[in-house]
């Protein structure tokens, strides 16, 4: 755990939305050439944490360091300028716009000067083709609307964009969530590719198998708190799944179910007894009436 200095580090950060504690005392870091997986159930605080990392929110308490210096981002743009790129679940791609316009959105290359300064469309189209080809995607027509592409292709465009713009840290928000097995595999390949290029990758996911396939370290969040950070050696896949799915809670639930079953059993026994008694009484009654007749 003593290799490179972390690219990005938070120390005991908390975030409150009104009276709701979304994050409580979370410390987290990512080093260069490392995939750090952030795991947790819905409402665990994953989204809040990455929104703080990417400058959308500011932490209520705690410190945030980037490359060793304390930082405070007021907008995603500021974080982006430092090299923290976030690929959101909705990808921040505009479906109606062509690939080349999407790729450079927010950071358009320009040529010319003064009033004739313009968006360098030829450069943009050429670059998009080249960059995606590097990732193994051959788009013939950069003018194609993003809305007409497959989910995996869109993910790849979003990741390629972040890498192209010199991201040092890549935050991926559930990039494999809505994908089929094959497409998810393609995306995981890009995650590893980004890592080998020396980027620090924060990989958020629900899927322990995807996480275990590419992750170097794992942080598990639960109800706004961290259950700890583990390296791959410290944590088996099974343990991770257990922690993620809230094993304690599952145990509690099965206890409860057993209890109910047991109670039902005793009820059954009691009922059987009542039945027996009833039968006996009926028999007696029958006998009695028999004698009367």
């Amino acid at each position: 755990m003593s290799q490179a200095q972390p690219l990005l580090e938070t120390q005991s950060i908390s975030k409150l939305f009104g009276s709701v504690i979304a994050l409580n005392d979370v410390s987290f870091s990512v080093r260069p050439a490392e995939v750090h997986c952030l795991l947790g159930d819905n409402g665990a605080g994953k989204s809040t944490l990455i929104k703080i990392l990417s400058g959308v929110h500011q932490p209520t308490e705690g410190a945030y360091f980037f490359e060793g210096e304390p930082v405070s981002f007021n907008s995603p743009r500021e974080a982006l300028e430092r090299g923290i790129a976030t690929v959101y679940q909705d990808l921040a791609l505009i479906p109606l716009m062509p690939i080349w316009r999407n790729f450079f959105l927010g950071l358009e290359p320009t040529k010319g000067w003064g009033p004739f300064k313009r968006f360098d469309a030829d450069f943009a189209k050429k670059t998009v083709r080249e960059e995606l080809l590097k990732m193994g995607i051959d788009i013939r027509d950069p003018g194609q609307a993003v809305g007409t592409m497959s989910g995996g292709e869109r993910q790849s465009i979003a990741i390629a964009r972040a890498v192209y713009f010199g991201a040092k840290v890549l935050i991926l928000d559930e990039p494999t969530a809505a994908l089929g097995v094959k497409q998810a595999g393609v995306v995981l390949k890009y995650v590893v590719q980004a890592k080998t290029r020396g980027l620090g990758v924060v990989f958020i996911t629900h899927n322990p198998h995807h996480a275990y396939a590419v992750g170097d370290r794992f942080t598990i969040l639960k109800r706004g708190r961290t259950l700890g950070t583990f390296t791959k050696e410290e944590l088996s896949r099974e343990e991770m799944i257990r922690l993620m799915s809230g094993a304690d809670e599952l145990d509690a639930i099965s206890h409860e179910l057993e209890e109910i079953a047991r109670r039902e059993e005793t009820v059954d026994q009691e009922l059987a007894q009542v039945d027996k008694q009833l039968a006996k009484t009926l028999e007696k009654l029958d006998d009695d009436t028999g004698t009367v007749q």
């Binding site: 907008s75 995603p76 976030t86 959101y88 909705d90 921040a92 505009i94 927010g106 950071l107």
Partner: peptide, 8 residues
Amino acid sequence: NAARNVGV
């Protein structure tokens, strides 16, 4: 929203 997220 998407536009804002990439800094527009």
